[in-house]
Design a protein around this nucleic acid. Structure first.
Lengths: 243, 243
DNA sequence: CCTCTCGATGAATCCATCT
DNA sequence: AAGATGGATTCATCGAGAG
């Protein structure tokens, strides 16, 4: 099992990756939602939108979260269409999104040529209640495939919903960090020994899950700080797994 | 608390209901999805599409499940826009859909003038597993409001996800029947003593939940058989509640 | 009345075969 | 070649009935 992190913009790096070389695309793009108004969406940084003013932590900011919804859909379809080229026939694609971007994300997937196959809610048990309304307790993972999904040698049956809270305290190194436990469950859709492509690697949680699960990993991350963080976590995970 | 069932097509009956007279629209439209091919989606009956070939029951079919997706979106937006007229400012709207129709349903809501406010997954513990893929374990409830949602006198905090199995055995009277327990939770978004409008009443489960929860209920159902079933269940629920 | 076992079921879907 | 048809499948859950 090998791993690599490319430092650069996904749209610039993806074209350098050869055709039909990965078995799962796992994308956690910047959501470009969260602001209550169009002005708030384009004006503020990701930190201002996603981190409550009373939150104590001081996590690094990330760029690329300032698109309006139409541009978001177009941009994401460009990314996903490059990913389709890189994916083997039968490969799966999993894209994280929040409730607001779910329709745009399903559009982008299908525009890019992927076959949409389902929605897997990610339930976050620790979430803020909302007065006089329904709690925003879930994010969503859209599942798609490149044609007919591959048949696994030993059949697998995956859950229809995943649960797990975001890492807290020292374990949390990125604002929108996903729990490794969630990613471990999702990565099982990639045949054992296969390769996972992650165009928005962030702090590398998907890579950690991939390596622990015996898959190779190709990550792309634009922010130099997070690319470094991811390399550190991946080296550590690779060492622990081989041990 | 009062209740009534109108027998007729929703698009014909809704215009007879006065402006600003309901506090919650709870809609469970025919999904117009499923089926194995495009032809079958619009050609076969709801039973053929949604009932497993190994199912033992012999429940009645229902009509209105033969639209392609474009027509579905348009038709639903007409329904929802009449519902917006009938809803008081601050009222909520809850619409059931499956994963395939979620984007079209959010479009229809917003085209009709509702403000989309969230997605509440409904998790069904009894669901068929799927080989080499993620189980289709959830349906979805889209939540929207007519402007700013009303402020409840005593604050309520609603779940971000609801769980419950379809009724089984003798309790099951409709192919796509919703559990009363689920509806009871959803109906809490309607202020106590308010009125619930249900344009696709089916066997009347939402009405039962409304009456049990101390809300008035206006249901519309096109299939004569189910309108009668709903009347029976509602009369029963009203008797038990007043007792 | 509680616990346990047994059997039935699912707002399907996949796949090979046929038209 | 594309679409239609028919049969096989899977397991967590729940109800019924037994102990």
């Amino acid at each position: 099992m090998t791993w690599q992190i490319h430092r650069g913009d996904a749209l610039a790096v993806l074209p350098t990756i050869p055709n039909g070389s990965v078995d799962l695309v796992l994308a956690d793009p910047p959501y470009n939602s969260g602001g209550r108004t169009a002005g708030e969406r384009v004006g503020s940084t990701a930190r201002d939108k996603y981190v409550s003013t009373d939150a104590g932590h001081t996590l690094a900011d990330f760029a690329g979260d300032n698109r309006d919804q139409r541009s978001y859909t177009y941009w994401l379809s460009l990314i996903l269409s490059e990913c389709l080229r890189i994916a083997r026939p039968g490969a799966s694609c999993l894209v994280f999104c929040d409730w607001r971007q779910a329709p745009a994300t399903s559009d982008a997937l299908q525009v890019a040529g992927w076959t949409w196959r389902g929605i897997i809610p990610w339930r976050k048990p620790i979430s803020r209640p909302q007065r006089d309304g329904f709690k925003r307790e879930c994010e969503y993972v859209l599942w798609a495939s490149h044609g007919t999904p591959v048949r696994h040698e030993t059949p697998i049956y995956l859950p229809g919903l995943v649960e797990g809270s975001q890492p807290r305290g020292a374990a949390r190194v990125h604002i929108t960090q996903k729990p490794v436990g969630i990613l471990r469950q999702l990565i099982r859709v990639c045949p054992a020994g296969g390769t996972v492509l992650d165009p928005f690697a962030g702090s590398g949680s998907a890579g950690v899950a991939a390596i622990e699960g015996g898959r190779s990993y190709i990550g792309i991350e634009n922010t130099a700080h997070y690319a470094e963080v991811a390399r550190g976590r991946l080296a550590q995970a690779a060492k622990e797994t081989s041990a």
